[in-house]
C-alpha cells in the first residue's frame, strides 16, 4: 500500500514505539539489574542504584547455596513438558472430531470449554485441594502434570481445532479412499500437515505451564515445587530480599525466555497460521 509518510512522522512513530517497548521490558530489565546488586544497595532510590552502586554476583551465589535450583528446574521441566504432552494426546482426537465430524452442539462444547478459562481458579481451589489431598496427589509432580494439563486443555483443543479446520477435508477423504485406517489417516496425513500449528501449540503450552503460578504454589510444598515456588520462597516472612528475589527470578525466567527467543519465528508463524493463504 502506498502512503505518504513524512520523515518527521516516521521518527515520531519510532520514538513512541521504542518508548512503549522499553516500558514493557523495563520490569524485566530492573530485575536483572537488581540481581547484580548487594542486598543493601537494592533498597536504595532507583537513580542511586543505577549510578552510585557497584556490581556483584553474590546474590546468585547465595540463592544457589540456599536452595536447590536444579531440583526446581527439573520439576518445572517435567511439569510443563508432561502436561503439554498429555494435553496434546487428549486434544488431537478431540480437535479431530470437532473439526471433521462436527455435531449440532460442537460450537457450544467449544464455547463451554473456553468458558472454563473465564472462571477464577481460586473458585475451585478448595475442591481440587481436597481431591488432591484424598488421592495423595498434593506436592507430587504427577498431580501438577494433571492439573496443568486440564487448565490448558481448552486452549490446546481450540488451537488444534483452528489448525485442523484449515486442512481440506477432501485430503483426509482421499486418505480414506486410499485404504488408510483412522489411525493411519491421523498419523500419516493429518498430523504432518498440521505440524506448524502443532509446534506453536506445544511451544505456547510449555510457556503457559512453565509460568503458571497459582496452582503450582497452592498444591506443592517442597518435593514437587517448580521454579515459581522457588521465586516465591524469596518473598518470605523473614523480610524482603530484593537482590536475592531478583536473582531467583532471573534464574527462573531465563530458560523460558531463551526458548521463546529461539522459537519466536515458529510461534508467530503458528499463531498467524492460515490468516493469509
Amino acid at each position: 500500500m502506498a502512503r505518504s509518510v513524512t520523515t518527521a512522522r516516521k521518527t515520531a512513530n519510532t520514538i513512541v514505539a521504542g518508548a512503549l517497548g522499553l516500558l514493557m521490558f523495563f520490569p524485566v530489565l530492573w530485575i536483572i539489574i537488581l540481581s547484580f546488586k548487594t542486598e543493601g544497595d537494592a533498597i536504595k532510590a532507583p537513580l542511586e542504584i543505577l549510578f552510585n552502586t557497584g556490581w556483584t554476583t553474590e546474590s546468585y551465589g547465595t540463592v544457589q547455596a540456599r536452595s536447590n535450583y536444579f531440583k526446581h528446574f527439573s520439576n518445572s521441566l517435567i511439569i510443563s513438558l508432561g502436561s503439554t504432552f498429555l494435553g496434546i494426546l487428549i486434544a488431537v482426537p478431540a480437535a479431530w472430531a470437532m473439526a471433521f465430524v462436527p455435531a449440532k452442539r460442537t460450537k457450544d462444547v467449544l464455547m463451554w470449554m473456553l468458558s472454563t478459562k473465564m472462571l477464577p481458579p481460586v473458585g475451585v481451589l478448595v475442591p481440587i485441594y481436597l481431591i488432591f489431598r484424598d488421592l495423595g496427589l498434593l506436592d507430587t509432580r504427577t498431580g501438577l502434570v494433571f492439573v496443568l494439563m486440564m487448565i490448558n486443555l481448552p486452549i490446546i483443543v481450540w488451537m488444534l481445532y483452528t489448525y485442523f479446520r484449515e486442512i481440506p477435508g477432501e485430503i483426509l477423504e482421499a486418505a480414506r479412499m486410499d485404504g488408510a485406517s483412522l489411525r493411519e489417516e491421523v498419523i500419516y496425513v493429518l498430523l504432518p500437515m498440521a505440524i506448524p500449528g502443532m509446534a506453536s501449540t506445544v511451544l505456547l503450552n510449555i510457556i503457559l505451564a512453565w509460568n503458571e503460578a497459582f496452582w503450582t504454589l497452592n498444591l506443592t510444598a517442597a518435593k514437587a515445587a517448580p521454579l515459581t515456588a522457588f521465586i516465591a520462597s524469596y518473598s518470605s516472612p523473614e523480610g524482603l530480599f530484593y537482590a536475592k528475589l531478583s536473582a531467583a527470578s532471573v534464574m527462573a525466567i531465563a530458560p523460558i525466555l531463551i526458548m521463546g527467543w529461539f522459537s519466536q519465528k515458529q510461534l508467530v508463524r503458528g499463531l498467524t497460521f492460515g490468516a493469509v493463504k
Binding site: 481440506p168 485430503i171 477423504e173 480414506r176 479412499m177 486410499d178 496425513v189 505440524i195
Partner: peptide
Amino acid sequence: LPPAKRRLAMVFQSYALYPH
C-alpha cells in the same frame, strides 16, 4: 463397509494430493 475396505479408488475435483 468403510471406504478403505471397498477397493475403490477416487479422483477428486481438488485433486486432494498430500501436500507434504
